[in-house]
Write a protein that binds this DNA or RNA. Structure first.
Length: 367
DNA sequence: GAACCGTGGGA
DNA sequence: TTCCCAAGGTT
């Protein structure tokens, strides 16, 4: 049942290509399919929806229009342009890869699987996407959309992530591929998944290949692809401090590797069980900075959801007490005292950025 | 193989 | 509010 008996594979591909050419969304990276533009868009689109990417892509291409301009940039500026998109290692890897392309490939984005895979941040999907979308090579791509579309067309009764499921999806995507049209075929499969064959409430009435969809025929569309149970989130309380002295605010840079690597943040940390956020903040400032602080007032509470955590961020204004203490930060890549207006020059995690907005709003209202 | 790495939008 | 998860890669 999970092995398709469909012996008219190219018809699926041709129908998809025709549907795509008539119905595709007008997206900036579909303008000229330049290898660099395709590359940047594919990195931005990893685990990220089209609507979120478009404004970032336009701003990025204006500032870093080609490989040399990106390679010459600093990591801090690159992260600033990525701020808010998430998964920040993508930006750091893109910069490293651009420099590698300059050194090893003379500034030209590679056009072979092996060379592409040398670039940090380019895995199996992205390499195939660049080969097919930019160079129109006859290679299939398998992303979340393709997995879902294929799982439904085939009525796949095992997880698309399982070894068997992967094989079936890749086999189908390869079989349906229209030779010479990989650029449009691959995008058609993904576009269909994004617009028609959506995870919930798929629009089967508008689907160009509904007639060949085994899941639709069997009434199993809502159960395809088969999902594996997802792990639970962890609830976290975090205290965060905007430490101010002589009109400047203390910020620190996150170390290489791990969460928010290379981004700047306000100091603070997790509140222990049965510890109030205020007590936690005073403790963390002592531990992290070696500074005794006095809390002036509470700025507010920010709720934020990460993939594995739900965080309630308690933010406080505070000052060194007594004044004039020497700051000795531990476990951060760098630190700085900056004027409030300079906060826009550094990349912060989204929750920190929201805190900065709240700070500005309060300052405007106060004066 | 499994854990880790963000965010915002929609239902 | 709460839950889902989207054009994946790295370790």
């Amino acid at each position: 049942m999970c092995h398709s008996q469909d012996r008219t594979p190219s018809e699926v591909g041709r129908d998809l290509v025709q549907w795509f050419l008539e119905n595709q969304r007008d997206l900036p990276w579909r303008r000229d399919y330049s290898p660099y533009g395709v590359w940047v868009s594919e990195i931005m689109l990893q685990q990220t929806q089209v609507a979120a990417v478009v404004p970032y892509y336009l701003r990025w291409m204006k500032r870093f229009p080609d490989v040399p301009s990106l390679a010459a940039a600093t990591e801090d500026e690159v992260l600033l342009y990525w701020e808010g998109l998430g998964y920040y290692s993508r930006a750091r890897n893109l910069l490293k890869a651009a420099r590698l392309v300059m050194e090893r490939f003379g500034g030209r984005v590679p056009d072979t699987e092996a060379d592409l895979r040398v670039l940090p941040g380019v895995g199996p999907y992205t390499a195939s996407a660049i080969l097919s979308l930019a160079y129109n090579r006859d290679v299939p791509v398998v992303d979340g959309n393709v997995e879902r579309v294929a799982a439904r067309l085939l009525d796949l009764d095992v997880s698309a992530k399982s070894p068997e499921g992967r094989r079936e999806v890749l086999r189908a995507a390869t079989q349906w591929l229209v030779p010479g049209k990989a650029r449009f075929y691959n995008q058609a499969l993904m576009e269909l998944g994004a617009v028609i064959c959506t995870p919930a409430h798929p629009k089967c009435l508008a689907c160009p290949v509904a007639a060949r969809c085994l899941a639709l025929r069997h009434g199993t569309v809502e159960n395809r692809p088969v999902r594996s149970p997802r792990p639970r989130w962890e609830e976290l309380r975090v205290a965060i401090g905007v430490l101010r002295e002589n009109g400047k605010i203390y910020i620190q840079k996150r170390p290489e590797g791990g969460l928010f690597a290379g981004l700047w943040e306000f100091p603070g940390g997790k509140a222990l069980e049965a510890e109030t956020p205020r007590v936690a903040l005073v403790r963390e400032m002592e531990e992290e900075l070696g500074v005794r602080v006095k809390i002036v007032d509470k700025i507010g509470v920010v709720r934020h959801a990460y993939t594995r955590f739900r965080v309630t961020l308690h933010a406080y204004r505070c000052v060194p007490d007594p004044p004039g203490q020497i700051v000795r930060p531990r476990a951060c890549a760098a630190w700085k005292w900056v004027r409030p207006s300079e906060l826009d020059l550094f990349a912060f995690p989204a929750a920190n950025r929201r805190l900065i907005q709240a700070l500005r709003k309060a300052a405007d209202a106060g004066s």
